[in-house]
């Protein structure tokens, strides 16, 4: 019996490990090999060409802009959803989650249809006012912000809901005004979650392909709108060298983010496994069951799987 059980276990383990190895490990090894084998000079020229440097700069600009937007709106919207009652709050919190499950091509198309210079809803007006959105930087920022929109929000909301308003109320009674409460209490409380959301958002922003492809027009040369992922795509499709080297850099960034996420998850797990020093009743007091439940429902609804949901 005991033998049969350990045999079962061994079979299960082997199948599981083989699956992961075939699907992930082998491909990663191959890519690393393809990056390394042409030698360091190929690597250098792949990442130092004019085109690559521009792509790096563009990617950084877009990522920073969309992370900043997502951080501001994520925290703001998180506060509104957890701290206030207003009609449509539930709907708002559900809608804020929508971008994660929309196809990137649909995202790009949606933005083109509204902000496109030729026949977009607002694009014509903006075009005649001299504002170009599609096929230029603002559109790429919009597309990137769209796909990573919920990442900060969904990290921040559970913390805001769990911590409740007592600390803020205590600060209020002690004389702190709204801005002081935000800076001295709310921000420190959500800081870890906020940073984590920012990391996820950053990784997602750096790697977006489909949505940015549609709104950028994928222009190379002068007025280049090619980000690093777009450049990878082009080099592969045009059979130009240097795709693997760029891809390898993106893989390194991704793995770094994953390790960070992993460490944080372990940390929060060990925190949670300790018995809470405060009576569990605390949770009951965090907020009325409705907002807590709905906030968690919507934001945590998609489970841990979407904890890393952003990194597409």
């Amino acid at each position: 019996m005991g033998n049969r059980r350990s045999a079962t276990r061994l079979v299960q383990r082997t199948i599981a490990l083989l699956y992961v190895a075939v699907l992930v490990l082998v491909p990663l090894v191959v890519v690393t090999w393809k990056t390394v084998s042409p030698g360091p000079s190929a690597f250098w020229s792949a990442i130092s060409s004019q085109q690559a440097v521009t792509a790096f700069r563009l990617t950084a600009e877009i990522a920073l802009a969309s992370v900043a937007l997502n951080a501001v709106f994520g925290v703001g919207l998180g506060l509104l959803i957890t701290r206030y009652r207003f009609p449509g709050r539930r709907l708002l919190s559900a809608l804020a989650d929508l971008p994660l499950s929309v196809s990137p091509i649909v995202v790009g198309l949606a933005l083109v249809l509204v902000y496109g210079p030729v026949d977009g809803w607002f694009g014509g007006t903006l075009h005649s006012a001299g504002i170009e959105i599609i096929f230029s930087l603002p559109g790429m920022i919009l597309a990137t912000t769209f796909v990573s929109f919920p990442l900060v929000l969904r990290e921040v909301v559970p913390v805001l809901a769990e911590e409740g308003i007592e600390q803020e109320q205590a600060a209020r009674v002690l004389g702190a005004n709204a801005w002081q409460r935000f800076l001295r209490i709310t921000l420190p409380v959500i800081r870890p979650a906020l940073l984590y959301g920012i990391v996820l958002s950053l990784a997602r922003s750096i790697g977006e392909y489909g949505a940015v492809l549609v709104v950028s027009g994928n222009v190379s040369g002068e007025n280049q709108t090619q980000t690093v992922p777009l450049l990878v795509g082009e080099r592969v499709q045009q059979l130009e060298p240097g795709a693997f080297q760029l891809a390898f850099l993106l893989i390194v960034v991704t793995v770094l983010v994953i390790v960070l996420v992993f460490l944080r998850r372990r940390e929060s797990e060990s925190k949670h496994s300790e018995p809470p020093a405060v009576v569990p009743d605390d949770l009951a007091l965090s907020a009325d069951p409705a907002p807590a439940a709905l906030a968690l429902n919507n934001v945590a609804s998609n489970d841990v799987a979407q904890e890393k949901g952003g990194l597409r």
Binding site: G207, P229, L230, V236, A247, L250, I251, R312
Partner: peptide, 18 residues
Amino acid sequence: DIPFALPTIVAGLVLLAV
């Protein structure tokens, strides 16, 4: 978590390579 977190085009390239 890696495959899912990779930029999609990189994931595509990885599979193409193998």
